[in-house]
Computed example of a mutant assay.
Amino acid sequence: MLSAPTSEPAGTLDAAATAARLPWGPLADEIAALLHDSTVSVPARSVLPLPRGGSLFVMPATDSRVAMTKLITLTPANASTGRASIQGDVVIFDIATGERRLVLDGPTVTARRTAAVSLLAARLMAPVQQGPLLVVGAGVQGQAHAQAFIEGLGVREVWIASRSAGSAELLAQQVRAMGATARVVTDADAALPHCPLVATCTPAHAVVLTATPRPDAFIAAVGAFTPTMAELSPSLCLHMAQHGHIVVDTEDASHEAGDLLQAGLDVAAIPTLRDVVRGPFTASTGPVLFKSCGWAGWDLAAARLAMQAVTQREHP
């Protein structure tokens, strides 16, 4: 008698199961560990434009144990249809045998590894880690950053600014369900004096922050990842360079960090998160801007952490 087909092939995890494999603290720790691993190899990602304004991303990476590729589409037009803007998978292979071992939900990996990178950066560099946290943009990344900072840093107050009042209120409800207080605001710049932690998580179609941040501010800017995209004004970026500290996630930011490039900064000369992890970070005063553009190495860190459960099951 044939067995009934399953909804997911063996080794394929849906969004909830993928998230369960990637808890915030351990994921941030795995990202830090990856930056110490000399066997990691991450070629440049390929981005192929699609006919209707979308993009296809192919992002491979390997270390001494696993090889993985994230294959996702980004379709900005989906924002008005109810469909997910990011769709796809992360496929993980065993180096020794070449076997496919696991398939993770791509959007979940993207959301969690991006927020976990910001969490790691805040752990290492934020002058004031307890918040309040200002989240600009109330989509998937806004939710992920709120959750990561609540669970990973102990933040108990979150301010939310979004061009969509409905999305902002939904995120506020989610924040309250996480045990923190939430406040929806209409002016992100006006909220800056009240929030030492900031995460900008917008589609980066327009600048959302122009005001001068607090002297003890930590800003994680994650929305822009091409030279033409920006969430932060040039004047804000120049202020951070002159009066504080800027760190980028990887060397690739030198041709991807639109916020910084549009401010005329020499991004290639800016330290990376690897420098900070291997540091220590020695900044003593002034605000900190962490500019994150994304990197397949962060997906590899997520793949390594997700594979730990497989390895423990096979070798108890």
Rank of each mutant, 00 (worst) to 15 (best):
L2D: 11
L2W: 02
S7N: 11
A15G: 06
A16H: 14
R21E: 12
I31A: 01
L35P: 05
V42E: 04
P49M: 03
T62H: 14
S64P: 03
R65L: 10
T69E: 12
P76E: 10
A79S: 07
S80F: 13
S80C: 13
G82N: 05
G82L: 08
I86H: 08
I86G: 01
D89I: 15
V91Y: 05
I92V: 11
I95A: 12
T97P: 07
G98S: 05
L102V: 11
D105T: 14
T108G: 00
T108L: 03
A111T: 09
T114S: 10
T114V: 10
S118N: 06
L119Q: 07
L119T: 01
A122Y: 06
R123E: 13
L124C: 09
G131W: 03
V136M: 04
A138K: 01
Q141H: 11
G152K: 15
G154E: 15
E157M: 09
V158I: 04
S167G: 09
Q173C: 07
A177E: 04
A177D: 05
T202A: 10
V207L: 15
D216E: 06
I219E: 05
A220F: 07
V222N: 02
V222T: 03
T228R: 06
S233T: 06
S235L: 10
C237L: 00
Q242A: 13
G244R: 04
D252Y: 05
A253K: 00
S254H: 15
H255R: 10
A257T: 00
A263P: 02
P271T: 13
L273A: 11
P280R: 14
S284L: 13
T285I: 15
L289V: 11
K291Y: 08
Q308F: 04
A309Q: 08
